[in-house]
Design a protein around this nucleic acid. Structure first.
Lengths: 405, 405
DNA sequence: GTAAATATTTTACCGACTGAAATAAATATG
DNA sequence: CATATTTATTTCAGTCGGTAAAATATTTAC
């Protein structure tokens, strides 16, 4: 292998082109080279070179275009390119309070298998954290008769503040230590690259790669679970802020000196729409003994309980206020409201949507789309997997360039 | 002139490098080539080529380094590079309700002269708008015995929604027509390139080029005049949102179904901190006959009027709430509060700052700086000039590449 | 005066991208 | 069926930006 004298700038440009081609194929599905060239405003020659590399790396493949003969058009037929789904296996993990959800996906993001690993301790030391993850991964891989060694990458989602570029966790509810650098621990314990990210950012990634944000440049993803999270995608990239931690949408204030929030402050959005906030409200009615989740309250409201309905309605009003503020500030292409449970139906009612629309300063251009995405309970794990796939793609393209010597 | 076969990508890369060098020199002042190379992570050879071009375009110049001999260090002395302030004259205009403020600046942003041009009509037709601007420019240039022909560029700031990339005004309080394309009108009437932008974005530009945002990558500029505006700089670039209109910070909601705002909605931040909101509050006290501006209320409060003080305090509380929301969402490096008058002192009190800090979810990293910038009354015009200088720089670098044939 | 140190410029070269030509693979046409 | 036409892809020579290394410039140290 000769030593390459390529300038770093050239390399970066080359990698960027490869990645743009790859992302275009991921977004559009089966496309011929000529369309990639025109879509990316580049020359067919470049696309030939880039796709040749991606094929040799096993990231994409040519497929037979059955529909070709039907097209009835003259000329050499287009050769369609597609992701090579079989090429890699990626694991996505979400660390929650009582369990770890794991999903194994192929390179296209298709679920291969999934698993739930119960947790005794919601908070673990970094060492326990990683070894528990390893155990969870082993169990998951065993399900398909495989081993952890087969994984191309592992992506881990946690609640909290993470500097993903350094696998550095400033703080997480799942980990006892603060400001811990997971790089060496992860690379020592796991046989493949591993990545840690904030969970809301991961869901944003999932929407971008596989979900309702496919192909969009500027959009926001509001995640609803027990609390409210936000992932920001600007110019096609996750925006992480200066300190690398996620946007704290749930703790934006919607009421001056308002309701007390778990974070200790007053008037946070989460103090009005979070699960615990709803349950707290219900204590006033003296009914909360039987109520355990927001879904219970929803059932109660649906069966005619006016107090329950009013609690949910108020949450919806506050949520609408918060979302309209997001639109006023970010002016995004689209806002995606993503949640796993049925329990956020009260945040997607016509009344809430109307409130959002009425809270946005109108311009001539149409309002951003507000799309609601009801995920299964693997939402967070899928988000992690999406991020993993993206990071593995970047790694593979880099390797490609390094080996090109 | 030979026809160049340069690929568009090469050209873009070249221009980007030239501009990065130019911006570095603008930010750092007098710097030697070697430091530019290390700061921009590029090779000295590239810097030599880039600076040679910029010098030939008259954008920068070499200066004698008097302090050289004192340095007492061996080796060839550094040759310092600096902006060539004399190279271009740029006009910045702010169109307000009752007047146009104009400032002429050199390429370094130094004020050459300024002028105020009274307006009869706050709202003008596009044709009148441009011809009034032309008249105002002529008067201004006459002040220094020059003519409009000498200007390298004109930059115009208006309140409203502007797509600056197309000189397209969706809506502005200064213009009777909506959705007007000013491109042909401006290029026909003015002898130099002209640019229109939203005024809050312009102030953000001024902070970035000359002010407290110098050298920063991610920061927010909150502008205070009659209302409240916001300019967003992310990754060194103005963020304009999907529809190209400014962020509507003044119309983010800080109270569910709160005070009525000029925009017709309820609970907008501006409905609590805008001039008219303060004056409205004072009507309740029966005192507002004598009060015309927020500054009057401030005087009143200072001389012991508790009602006036309470009106201002409430505005401060709401403002603090709004700003803490900005920090929670954007996690910026720095927030700059910029205003022209003394009338926003009540928004910069220790109490307000404490409220902001208390409203931000704390992480280990330090809170973003909150810096207050008291400008003279030419703030907006200077902002326009800053934008003009930037746009002219881009144009000149493009010309350079075109002539390089 | 010569050596050493540091800044800048020159030179030879690399490599990403491109346009144009060549090639490939289909249909249309007679 | 052979040939022309059309369209997709690949090959190839060339351009250009950036770089490393060598050369040059200009200073201080001794």
């Amino acid at each position: 292998m000769l030593k390459s004298k390529a300038s770093p700038i050239s390399l970066e440009q080359r990698n960027a082109t490869r990645l743009r081609v790859l992302e275009h194929i991921r977004t559009k599905g089966a496309v011929p080279r000529i369309e990639i060239a025109s879509a990316l405003q580049t020359s067919p020659a470049t696309v030939t070179a880039a796709t040749a590399d991606l094929i040799s790396a096993g990231l994409i493949k040519e497929i037979e275009s059955e529909a070709q003969s039907k097209s009835g058009k003259r000329g050499r037929p287009k050769v369609l390119l597609q992701l090579d789904g079989q090429s890699f296996l990626v694991a996505g993990l979400k660390i929650a309070r009582q369990m770890i959800s794991i999903i194994l996906v192929d390179f296209e993001g298709n679920e291969v298998t999934s698993h739930k690993f119960p947790l005794d301790n919601a908070r673990m030391s970094p060492t326990d954290f990683v070894s528990t993850i390893q155990k969870a991964l082993e169990e998951t891989c065993a399900k398909i008769g495989g081993s952890v060694g087969q994984l191309a990458g592992v992506s881990i989602g946690v609640a909290g503040q993470v500097d993903a570029s350094r696998n550095f966790v400033h703080w997480s509810s799942s980990i006892t230590e603060r400001n811990f650098d997971f790089r060496s621990l992860l690379s020592n314990q796991l046989p493949c690259p591993a990545f840690i990210e904030n969970d809301a950012n991961l869901v944003a990634k999932a929407e971008q790669l596989f979900g309702l944000g496919k192909g969009l440049k500027n959009f926001l993803v509001v995640t609803i679970e027990h609390g409210v999270g936000l992932g920001i995608v600007l110019d096609g990239k996750l925006y992480r802020g200066e300190r690398g931690c996620g946007a704290e949408f749930g703790h934006t204030k919607v009421q001056l000196d308002g309701a007390l929030c778990q974070c200790g402050q007053r008037g946070c959005l989460e103090a009005y729409v979070g699960d615990y906030a709803l349950l707290r409200e219900m204590t006033v009615t003296g009914q909360n003994n039987e109520l355990k989740t927001a879904s219970d309250i929803h059932d109660r409201a649906f069966s005619g309980d006016e107090r329950a309905a009013s609690v949910l309605a108020r949450a919806g009003q506050m949520f609408g206020l918060g979302v309209s503020n997001l639109i006023n500030l970010f002016d995004p292409e689209c806002i995606i409201v993503s949640g796993t449970q049925k329990s956020f139906e009260h945040l997607c009612t016509d009344e809430v949507m109307a409130r959002i629309r009425n809270g946005v300063i109108s311009v001539d251009a149409a309002l951003p789309d507000i799309r609601v995405h009801h995920w299964g309970d693997l939402m967070w794990a899928k988000g992690a997997a999406a991020y993993g796939i993206e990071q593995i793609s970047i790694l593979k393209v880099k390797e490609l360039a390094a080996n090109a010597s």
